[in-house]
Simulated scan of single mutants.
Amino acid sequence: MISTIKKGSLLIIAPLLLIIVSLIIGSSQNINLGELFHHIALETGLSRDQASLQGSLHTILWQVRLPRIILTFLVGASLASAGGVLQAVFRNPIVDPFTLGISSGSAFGAALAMLFPVMAVNVSAFIFGVAAVGITYLVSYAGAKTSIVSMVLAGMIVSGVFTALLTVLQYLSDPYKLQAIVQWTMGNLHTASWQKVYTALFPILAGLLIIIIFRWKLNLLALGDHEAMAVGVNPFVLKLVFMAVATMITASAVAAVGVISLFGLIVPHISRMIFGPNNKITVWANISIGGTFLLLIDDFSRTVLPFEIPIGVFTMIIGAPVFIFLMRRNAINWNS
């Protein structure tokens, strides 16, 4: 059996190897490792062959593939981390970042900005994603407390309302805007750019840093409120903090690339299967496995077929059978 140290080293090695592979493969042009390292040397100033800096290969590597790789990894890491956090906070293995209505709220906000360009698409998606969580909390709040079951049910209701509103916007859209909205709701990575990377980078990294710093407290929440209070921790405040962070990184990811289904549900289970239920370890695993897995799916979506399949469709096609297989094999066990 592979030791914990070797498993941990794979969390670093696997993403680095896949990033290199993702740079050299693509539907437009495949390159070899020698060409890749030559261009890296040019960019870092180790080579003086400035003439090679020009041309299509330079554009493909550093203006098309690299921002897409970085954005894909950030989105995968954020969705997986948010899923792991919410599952620990709610002590429920079927909760994911979209349970609270974040995805449907962000999708409605993005569609609204596409149809009525008053503000940027990513800003509108973020605002309505946060608003959906706020409405979910207010609906479920009763008697000076909020139960987990009522919040999950409220999230499903809020998600349904925003989905219906999104359908109304699609009905009102002209054919060109309708196509853009539909593509965005299926997950859209082919429009990745450095601007989108810069927009999503700070909120996602800030949220992941907070999760990493306070990851040990997730173990307390997973044990229950009474156990958390017994060691001097206020579970109510802690839950609000983690929910706010999960909302921030999920809304930032959805605002950048659109809706990616099932990802935040499946990856935390995979992390627990490999590393166990200790959140001090699985937080790191969710970041690495989430980014690596989504990057692997994106590589398939842009290289296997002559046309590119939206990443959200691909995650559903791949993720659903994998999850069903693991569930049938009893590999997923929240209590282990």
Score class of each variant (00 low, 15 high):
residue 280 K to S: 07
residue 238 L to N: 01
residue 311 I to L: 08
residue 304 V to F: 15
residue 233 V to P: 00
residue 210 I to N: 00
residue 269 H to M: 11
residue 188 N to V: 10
residue 275 F to P: 04
residue 216 W to C: 01
residue 262 L to C: 05
residue 210 I to C: 07
residue 217 K to H: 08
residue 187 G to L: 11
residue 244 A to T: 07
residue 279 N to W: 02
residue 286 N to W: 14
residue 256 A to W: 14
residue 254 V to F: 15
residue 297 I to Q: 02
residue 214 F to H: 01
residue 240 L to P: 04
residue 299 D to K: 11
residue 217 K to V: 07
residue 287 I to W: 07
residue 190 H to I: 15
residue 282 T to K: 06
residue 276 G to L: 13
residue 198 Y to Q: 11
residue 214 F to R: 00
residue 273 M to N: 03
residue 231 V to A: 04
residue 211 I to Y: 06
residue 202 F to P: 01
residue 307 F to Q: 15
residue 296 L to V: 15
residue 256 A to Y: 13
residue 309 I to E: 06
residue 270 I to F: 06
residue 273 M to L: 13
residue 192 A to G: 02
residue 252 S to T: 15
residue 300 F to Y: 12
residue 259 V to L: 08
residue 201 L to C: 07
residue 300 F to V: 13
residue 275 F to H: 03
residue 272 R to I: 07
residue 211 I to E: 04
residue 316 M to H: 04
residue 241 V to W: 08
residue 237 V to Q: 12
residue 315 T to N: 01
residue 216 W to R: 04
residue 238 L to I: 09
residue 265 L to C: 06
residue 298 D to Q: 12
residue 211 I to L: 07
residue 314 F to H: 02
residue 314 F to M: 14
residue 276 G to Q: 09
residue 269 H to F: 13
residue 278 N to R: 05
residue 273 M to E: 09
residue 261 S to E: 15
residue 275 F to Q: 03
residue 248 M to V: 12
residue 234 N to C: 05
residue 261 S to D: 11
residue 263 F to R: 03
residue 256 A to E: 13
residue 222 A to W: 01
residue 306 P to G: 14
residue 294 L to M: 11
residue 313 V to L: 08
residue 230 A to F: 13
residue 283 V to C: 06
residue 260 I to Y: 05
residue 195 Q to A: 10
residue 266 I to T: 05
residue 247 T to Q: 05
residue 257 V to L: 08
residue 235 P to H: 09
residue 286 N to C: 15
residue 189 L to M: 12
residue 231 V to F: 08
residue 242 F to L: 05
residue 309 I to D: 04
residue 220 L to R: 00
residue 229 M to I: 09
residue 252 S to Y: 05
residue 197 V to P: 02
residue 297 I to G: 09
residue 316 M to Y: 10
residue 297 I to N: 04
residue 187 G to E: 11
residue 225 D to E: 14
residue 268 P to A: 11
residue 302 R to E: 15
residue 246 A to V: 04
residue 297 I to F: 12
residue 199 T to R: 09
residue 314 F to Q: 04
residue 224 G to K: 02
residue 285 A to R: 07
residue 264 G to H: 07
residue 292 T to M: 06
residue 310 P to E: 15
residue 294 L to W: 14
residue 295 L to V: 06
residue 302 R to P: 08
residue 256 A to D: 11
residue 228 A to C: 03
residue 245 V to T: 11
residue 191 T to H: 10
residue 238 L to D: 01
residue 294 L to S: 11
residue 280 K to L: 10
residue 257 V to P: 02
residue 225 D to T: 01
residue 229 M to D: 10
residue 249 I to T: 10
residue 274 I to C: 06
residue 258 G to K: 15
residue 279 N to K: 06
residue 297 I to T: 05
residue 205 L to R: 00
residue 304 V to A: 14
residue 308 E to P: 01
residue 287 I to V: 15
residue 311 I to A: 13
residue 225 D to Y: 00
residue 286 N to R: 05
residue 204 I to P: 00
residue 221 L to T: 03
